[in-house]
Design a protein around this nucleic acid. Structure first.
Length: 581
RNA sequence: GGCCCCGUAGCUCAGCAGGAUAGAGCGCAGGAUUCCUAAUCCUGAGGCCACUGGUUCGAAUCCAGUCGGGGUCACCA
């Protein structure tokens, strides 16, 4: 039950009744929201101001007509015009109590909607190169993409979590060479790792495995063939490593899409290129060198170009390299056409800040490949600076100093890692301080929120201890006389709970999971605040052994708060503990 | 030089598809614990929302430009 959505439709219905023929696009701008200042009421709408001008009327005139209309609404206790034409509503307590019943009834599903109508959305995230374990730099995108995918699912989309494996190309050949070196090392040779190779220790086991499988026979094969064999072994191990890293954060993709499957005769790149040619989206031409910064090895030559500028990009893009092989982008066009042909009309890509220059061409590709029928939102995750007690962490590329995702998760745990990374807009760079994240005080938002959940559970434990005869089953809570909750403190907390479905919906539309982190933090604060009021005013305590009915009602409220925190943390992928250790 | 992101309290950041008197945490100053977990709460001080124009009933929010910070810039992935 989302009372804001409920009243939005009531307001729009009223407008239709009062002024037939209003444009539906215009009405989409009508918003019913909680006023910033609670003194203004429970709900506020801009309806009169939105509609006044097209009607050629004064906003207050329209507002007055709406006010008259809503005086007949039994759920509304007062309506008035305010300021330039806002309409403020005050709602009957009964409707807030209805919200509590709705939470009890829907439980872990409270806040879900079918706004997405089951449409398919593809969320591609991580897609780290399989040339080593996950680096800290990947962590933010991984957590963000995962939370966003859950959020979209809550909003009624059919979500596919996808990982694009770059398992072909020059980098993978270097990986193969690096692994081959480790193989020689395993056979007893003293090796030296040239610069440009992958020096990490994580390839040592690959060398050992090659030795176990092939003995010395790889040495007899031609170099190129041996490299390919070593590459296969290395890629498989690297992907296992990455999957294990992701599993530490409880991240699991539905589809691991291999870039390699796009290549080759009859592959998607070939067919996509043919298709692009038929559509006239490709031509042979020359590219101008970028102004202001011409690469030294710039080669002015005729090449095969995609008309990216027709779809909003800044320049056309090469599809075939000088050596005749496809560019990365050519494969990516084919990949996204593949997504489209698999039925995705909504696509979201989560990329690191260093890929922001890639956004336009990706969107151009999706637009071209779908004839404008699919949309692509690219969410850029800004860099994370690692700190320890305020001091920057060195992140040298030498293998020993590399900070991996695994290092971070082992140090601070999955919950804290996830919450901290989500407690910030994705497009703002952030500092991640190990010392703070491990702290268990209110400075640390993770523990602050988890503590609120644990505290709610604790209140139930106390109630069971002090009022052993009270039935606290789900059915009993659902049947609690929540009408007894009429104090301003009670209603304030309930209003906050009632905002949850709206928060989820707005966050999903904006593709901004961080809003849920902030919401859940605010709700925790409101709950802690209510708890403290019970110190001064015993009538506000949750557990009142002298009043079983009131206690049951209060516990229904506590459980609603607990449930919403649990739901929120669930979307973010953070656990909601019953007690803190 | 082109493109993208950012600029809000001393610090770190929110600001809900333009809305009423711009919020939170930290830090600072004070206060609350025989009582449901003080792992918490309450009160206070603290702002030209970088700047200049524009759009309109109304702008921190949208547009243009300026300044400042970051990222990125064929044929890598």
């Amino acid at each position: 039950m989302d009372i804001f959505a409920l009243f939005t439709t009531r307001v729009i219905d009223a407008l239709h009744a009062l002024y037939p023929g209003l444009d539906s696009g215009l009405l989409a701008r009508v918003v019913v929201e909680p006023p910033r200042d609670a003194a203004h009421g429970d709900l506020s709408t801009n309806a009169a101001m939105v509609v006044a001008k097209p009607l050629g009327k004064n906003p207050r005139e329209v507002a007055t007509a709406l006010v008259e209309h809503f005086k007949a609404d039994a759920d509304v206790t007062s309506v008035e015009v305010a300021g330039p034409g806002f309409i403020n509503f005050r709602l009957a307590n009964a409707i807030w109590h209805q919200v509590l019943r709705s939470v009890a009834a829907q439980g872990a599903d409270f806040g879900r909607s079918n706004a997405g109508r089951g449409e398919k959305v593809n969320v591609e995230y991580v897609s780290a190169n399989p040339t080593g374990p996950m680096h800290v730099g990947h962590t933010r995108g991984a957590v963000f993409g995962d939370a966003l995918a859950s959020l979209m699912a809550w909003s009624g989309y059919d979500v596919t979590r996808e990982y694009y494996i770059n398992d072909t190309g020059g980098q993978t050949i270097i990986l193969g060479r690096s692994a081959l070196l480790r193989y020689r090392q395993a056979l007893g040779e003293t090796i030296e790792i040239p610069s440009g190779f992958y020096p990490g220790d994580y390839l040592i086991p690959v060398g050992e495995a090659l030795k176990a499988e092939y003995g010395t026979s790889l040495l007899d094969k031609p170099e190129e063939e041996a490299v390919l064999i070593a590459r296969e072994a290395a890629l498989a191990v690297m992907m296992d490593l990455i999957r294990a890293d992701l599993a530490q954060l409880n991240i699991h993709h539905d589809v691991f899409f291999s870039e390699r499957t796009l290549h080759g005769v009859g592959g998607d790149i070939e067919s996509t290129l043919a298709w692009l040619r038929e559509e006239g989206m490709v031509y042979e031409g020359r590219l101008e060198a970028p102004k202001g910064k011409t690469p030294e090895d710039w080669e002015d030559r005729e090449q095969t170009l995609f008309r990216a500028t027709d779809y909003g990009d800044d320049t056309d893009r090469a599809l075939i390299k000088s050596d005749g092989s496809y560019t990365y982008f050519a494969a990516d066009i084919a990949y996204h056409r593949n997504k489209y042909l698999r039925g995705f009309k909504h696509m979201i890509n989560v990329l690191g800040a260093d890929h922001s220059g890639y956004v336009k061409r990706l969107q151009a590709a999706v637009k071209a490949v779908s004839h404008g029928e699919a949309d692509m939102d690219v969410r850029i995750c800004q860099l994370v600076r690692l700190l320890k007690n305020g001091e920057p962490f060195k992140m040298s590329k030498r293998s020993g100093d590399l900070v991996t995702l695994s290092d971070v998760v082992e140090e601070v745990g999955s919950d804290a890692t996830r919450f901290m990374l989500l407690f910030r807009r994705n497009d703002a760079s952030m500092d991640f301080d190990f010392a703070l994240v491990k702290e268990q005080t209110r400075d640390n938002p993770v523990f602050y929120v988890q503590y609120a959940h644990a505290r709610a559970c604790s209140i139930f434990r106390t109630a069971r201890r002090d009022m052993p005869d009270l039935d606290l089953s789900a059915a009993a809570l659902a049947g609690a006389e929540v009408e007894l909750l009429s104090s301003p403190a009670d209603l304030e907390l309930i209003r906050m709970v009632a905002t949850w479905p709206r928060t989820v919906a707005a966050a999903a539309i904006a593709h901004e999971p961080h809003r849920l982190a902030f919401y859940v933090h605010d709700l925790a604060a409101a709950f802690h605040g209510f708890w403290a009021k019970g110190k001064d005013d015993p009538s506000l305590r949750f557990v009142n052994p002298s009043d079983a009915k009131l206690t049951l009602a209060r516990l229904a409220l506590v459980d609603a708060v607990r449930q919403v925190i649990s739901n929120g943390l669930g979307i973010l992928g953070v656990t909601a503990p019953e007690e803190l250790s």
